[in-house]
């Protein structure tokens, strides 16, 4: 589950997902599928009536035609897209679903994945602190530009006054409710590992891993993670 595709100008997450896909494809006994979300910046790739569609005739690569994602709750508000994703899961029946992003898919797809595929392993890679911090996941306080040393309903309201402390409290619980569906969380740094630990994610499910490297190495590393006992 990639936030974009490198061939369409995607960022680090898109590159990491594509590299991993490439490495896994060369690994025996593994059948990876790449689902890249793209937004309205590529309207020509949106097929009328389709919500998930093949990408450029490339085997096992698909586009998730994303739109109408709520910017605060990172919630997908298009039922047809959510239903298409559920159908996609049923058709592909993966043993592992790895989210390199939730913001362009909608975070409730984590819970939906767990409900459709109760025994699959769900992995989430965080690129930033978006689940914790409504200020674009930066953990930098908008009021004075200093590093945030701890999100809380009141501190987040101080940073984003148009949102009440109750909203911020709800946002944190909303995120946690869906993240609870995941088995493993991958963070790129010790700092983010600490932040997500303080946020409430179980320490034993937080794994620090880099997202760069050749395809084979990435495939080897992530396969070991996918196959590790729960």
């Amino acid at each position: 589950m990639a936030p974009g595709h490198p061939d369409l100008g995607g960022g680090e997450g898109a590159q990491a997902a594509a590299t991993l896909f490439e490495g896994l494809r060369e690994t025996g006994g593994v059948h990876p599928v790449l689902l890249s979300s793209i937004g309205r910046s590529w309207p020509a790739l949106f097929k009328p009536g389709a919500h998930i569609t093949a990408f450029d005739a490339r085997p096992h690569q698909y586009l998730f035609l994303s739109h109408d994602i709520d910017p605060l709750w990172h919630r997908n508000r298009e039922p047809l897209l959510v239903e298409a994703y559920a159908e996609f899961l049923r058709l592909t029946a993966p043993g592992v679903v790895h989210f390199f992003d939730f913001a362009t898919f909608g975070i409730e797809l984590l819970s939906l994945t767990r409900r459709i595929l109760p025994s699959c392993r769900i992995v989430v890679s965080f690129q930033d602190a978006l689940a914790i911090c409504a200020a674009d996941g930066s953990l930098v306080r908008r009021v004075d530009g200093t590093a945030c040393n701890g999100a809380s309903p009141v501190r987040c309201h101080h940073c984003i006054p148009e949102r009440t402390p109750e909203d911020m409290f709800l946002r944190a619980r909303w995120m946690m409710a869906h993240l609870a569906a995941a088995d493993v969380f991958i963070v790129p740094s010790a700092v983010l590992r600490g932040e997500y630990g303080r946020f409430g994610l179980p320490a034993e499910r937080l794994v620090q891993l880099g997202t760069a490297g050749p395809p084979e190495a990435m495939a080897s590393t992530y396969l070991a993670l996918y196959r590790a006992p729960a």
């Binding site: 298009e78 959510v82 409730e108 819970s111 939906l112 409900r115």
Partner: peptide, 10 residues
């Protein structure tokens, strides 16, 4: 729309 999604998700 929201009820349709919530029901499907949960």
């Amino acid at each position: 729309r929201d009820a349709r999604i919530a029901s499907l998700v949960h």
